[in-house]
């Protein structure tokens, strides 16, 4: 059994990457592997917004990640630099940048690229979904 981490860079809803990443995460856990961390980078950070409102008959990717994180105790981390410049902010970043509001979904954390490096050091495999 191996320890995995995922690097998700795909733009949610514009491409298949995020859908594939969630399926992959669920499947590896079902097969008895462990998932240490999912790191969101580049356009992948956009999924961390709690303001997505896809049509009712389509999967809500943010909620799908949140469900996985809560049920399986998985860390969902979005890169702070990538997130802030794409309009994904938590309360403290919103205050620091004098923004009118924050939009980070509570299942996600904002942190630095060091968390990606650490994920590689502590995992057997890092799989990218771009």
């Amino acid at each position: 059994m191996a320890t995995f981490s995922l690097l998700v860079t795909a733009n949610p809803y514009s491409s298949q990457g995020q859908f594939s990443a969630i399926q992959f995460a669920r499947t590896l856990l079902e097969q008895g592997h462990s998932l240490m961390r999912v790191f969101f980078y580049a356009d992948g950070v956009l999924v961390a917004s709690r303001l997505h409102a896809p049509p009712a008959d389509e999967i809500n990717l943010t909620k799908a990640w949140a469900k996985l994180a809560i049920e399986k105790d998985i860390e969902l981390i979005a890169c702070v630099t990538a997130a802030n410049k794409r309009g994904i902010v938590n309360a403290s970043e919103a205050e620091r940048n004098a923004l009118t509001g924050d939009n980070l979904d509570p299942a996600f954390e904002i942190s630095g690229l060091g968390q990606l490096t650490e994920a590689m050091l502590e995992s057997d495999r890092l799989i990218t979904f771009g």
Binding site: Y41, T81, G112, L113, G114, L116, T117, E118, M120, L121
Partner: peptide, 9 residues
């Protein structure tokens, strides 16, 4: 940016 951060580790 990933390269530089990993190098720092």
């Amino acid at each position: 940016d990933i390269a530089l951060m990993a190098a720092a580790f």
